[in-house]
Amino acid sequence: MARMHTRRRGTSGSDKPVADEPPEWSDVDAEDIEARVVELAEQGHDPSQIGLKLRDGGVKGTPVPDVKLATGKKVTTILEENDAAPELPEDLRNLMERAIRLREHMEENAQDKQNKRALQNTESKIRRLVNYYRGDELDEDFTYSYDVAVELLE
């Protein structure tokens, strides 16, 4: 979705190394990892931030390079099992926050054409994601609007 509204080609990036099991130096118990994931979620961290904190800080001083390799479950799956999952998917939440910031900017700077276009593109991405998540993560009758986004993010 990164290049949806441009004509440029995508940029190549690095791939994760192919691995079937966690490295020997990271011998943390799966239950400890799950407990730390739930603890970080209760502190208000998003799933991507939880992964970064486990990679950098680890559990009991030992870094966890990949939660899925160490536990066999993704971070979001662990959160769902422990009833700590966020009410909105992280990507949708981030796009809504961006749309709110752009809309507030547009109220002060009505002649800013570049940000007007950015707001249109962002709201288009939000509508596409709402269609993707509708029924599973969102209600069947959920529709995006600025007022709904402000209400959800408060």
Rank of each mutant, 00 (worst) to 15 (best):
P22C: 07
K53W: 05
S145K: 00
R55S: 12
D83P: 08
T71K: 01
K74Y: 04
Q114L: 14
D136C: 06
S48Q: 14
E123C: 07
V64A: 06
D66G: 05
E108K: 15
L138D: 03
M106D: 01
L40C: 03
Q49E: 15
N109V: 05
A41C: 03
T76Q: 03
L129Y: 04
A41P: 02
K16G: 11
G44M: 05
L92K: 04
L95M: 03
L40E: 09
T76L: 06
A70G: 04
N115V: 10
E90I: 03
E81K: 14
I33W: 00
S12P: 07
D20N: 15
K73W: 00
K53P: 09
V75R: 00
E123V: 11
H105I: 09
D46I: 14
D112V: 05
D29P: 11
T11W: 09
D29T: 05
F142D: 12
A41E: 07
I126M: 02
T62R: 06
N82S: 13
A19H: 08
S12W: 14
Y132M: 13
Q114W: 06
S124L: 14
E107N: 11
M106G: 07
D141S: 13
E137G: 02
L40K: 00
G51K: 00
E104P: 01
E97M: 13
E151I: 02
L69T: 07
P63W: 00
L152Y: 11
G13K: 02
I100Q: 05
F142L: 11
R103N: 09
R36H: 03
E107P: 03
S48P: 09
Q49L: 10
R9S: 09
T143G: 06
E97P: 04
E104V: 03
Y146E: 15
H105P: 06
P17G: 05
D32W: 04
P86C: 01
Q43P: 00
E87R: 15
L152F: 13
P65Q: 04
R127P: 10
L138Q: 03
P47V: 02
N131S: 15
G57A: 09
